[in-house]
Write a protein that binds this DNA or RNA. Sequence first.
RNA 1: GCACCCGUAGUGAAAUGGAUAUCACACCAGUCUUCGAAACUGUUAUUCUAGGUUCGAAUCCUAGCGGGUGCACCA
Length: 596
Amino acid sequence: MNKVITDAIFKVVGDENSASFLMGKNLLDRPGDLSHGDYSTNVAMILAPKLGVKPIELANQIMQKLQASIAEGVLTGIEKVEVAGPGFINFYLSQSTSLELIKEILSEDKGGDNYGKTNLHGGKKMIYEYTDPNPFKQFHIGHLMSNAIGESLARLGEWSGGDVKRYCYQGDVGRHVAFTFYGFDLLKKEEGIEWPSENLSLSEKVAFLGKIYAKGATHFKDHEEDESIVQEINKKIYNKSDNELNALYDLGKKWSMDHFEEIYKMLGTKFNEYFFESDSSVVGLEEVKKGLKSGIFEESEGAVIFKGENYGLNTRVFINKFGLPTYEAKEVGLALLKYNKDPYEVSFTITANEQDNVLAVSYKAIEQIYPEIAKKNVHLSHGMLKLTTGKMSSRTGDVITGESMLHDMTEMALSKMEEREIPEEERKEIAQQIAVSAIKYTILRQTIGKDIIFDPQKSLSFEGDSGPYLQYSCVRAKSVLNKAKNNGIEIDLDKIEIENLKDFKICQLGWAGGKLEKMLVRFPEVLIRSEVERAPHYVSQYLLDVASEFNSFYANTQIVVEGDFLTPYKVGLTKATLIVLTNGLNVLGIEVPSRM
RNA sequence: GCACCCGUAGUGAAAUGGAUAUCACACCAGUCUUCGAAACUGUUAUUCUAGGUUCGAAUCCUAGCGGGUGCACCA
């Protein structure tokens, strides 16, 4: 079609330069407003000033040539071409083309579960590192945000033909672990508390870890003279020199990890590999020491630093004056560990944007050491989940944990389902799926870079622009399909005559408008755009539009009518909608319950 | 102070430099004997300010005002 348009322009303009200017460009836009056609092009407006003519006149001339192409049968599948607005040329697909596309959604090979899959990446090896909670600390709603975004980016990669691996990187050593055991020592002295026995439940053990960490962190704030004590503990953890401490450390780490795993299961994430700071710190330390000799790093005030200011960045400490590697050095080690584990073509690290500057410095340092690996590392940052009271802080306890949020949302979903006659077990499972979808959708409906101000009372809705709304739309569609099945209605679009469809109105939009159909066939393009821009919110927005259109259709039309020759088509359209919604929700990491 | 990000209805958001700036919540008025009302139909309201680039600016450039984040041994 591009070529046909270029030819038409060439015929009108007769100018080699103008035509070649357009060659290889995608001339076609997908207008946001369906009343502007299925495709449109603005070439007339771009070329008119160069040629010194009015855009409308040029557009009209091009349109006439295009109409001639349609008459000659060169340009097929197009029903109408028109000039609109300041000089847009709009194309309308013919109804038979639309019908063919709907058939494709329903087909065995390209359609169904596969509808929307592309081979954009051709099996490229892609790494996604996200969530990254720290053992001994809480899994808070910020981790929920990183997980929702990372998981959907990973899935977009998969749907676009990438060979995707999911990594999780965890800070199992460092100051926060030192604070944990510092806090434990304090509470042991002050209150005589003891390390929990193995008989306690996992959540009780995790609560204990949270308690001693909070104690250590808050106490230190008022007792900074304890710095050397904290550093001493920190060093012991790195060196594994204290057997008693090692035993408690191993237990605590395992509890944290088990606890996180429960949450990942709820969220639908399965990581391929776990990386730890206790490993990356060793490699990082070694690399930075080597770099010190070669002049990449330098010593300053007893620490080893990287002069980021030479590159317009901050100068930062990589090895502190106690000889321990910082976050920055660990990133250097991690990049190497990841690459050696399984060489990749691209590796994404997904974190909150408060880490932008620090990671920029680390990546710049890696670039000096291993330029080839650095080139393949991409940092994607997202906004922060903030409370209405301000920034969350796990130190002051002004924090909402991931599981408390999941729990509260599940309770809300359960109360909504009170009147449904669903067995207890299934009811709980569905409520959890709804809770997860509400949370994920709230995060994924907007541009990933922006903050979300989170008001626990109001923020997560089950109505309107929400995950549960999309799930509900699917459940409705399933319910219709069930009824159709019980009535013995088969979906056979081959039997549908275009001429018959024309005379019948399917809701007020009608087949002639065919808005729902036109929206459904755009799904693969939406996924591609989302993947290219790494913007899952295009998927959310699109799904909301589709669901909303389907719900109008549903409310205005009885889909399954006995003896109605149009019913097989309407049922087919319902099924196509369900496929698009289900696949789209899958990309967002949201499951579709069979009922709710 | 320096660097980066951001400013769109009452609120929360969307908009490859394109057409009448879209969606949800809230408000108000309606719709359950139909395939599930977690729904549908209708109504009101929006681009921080001042310049500039462009056939065309919420979008790009400059300045200002307002907000966020980061700036040496935490991650």
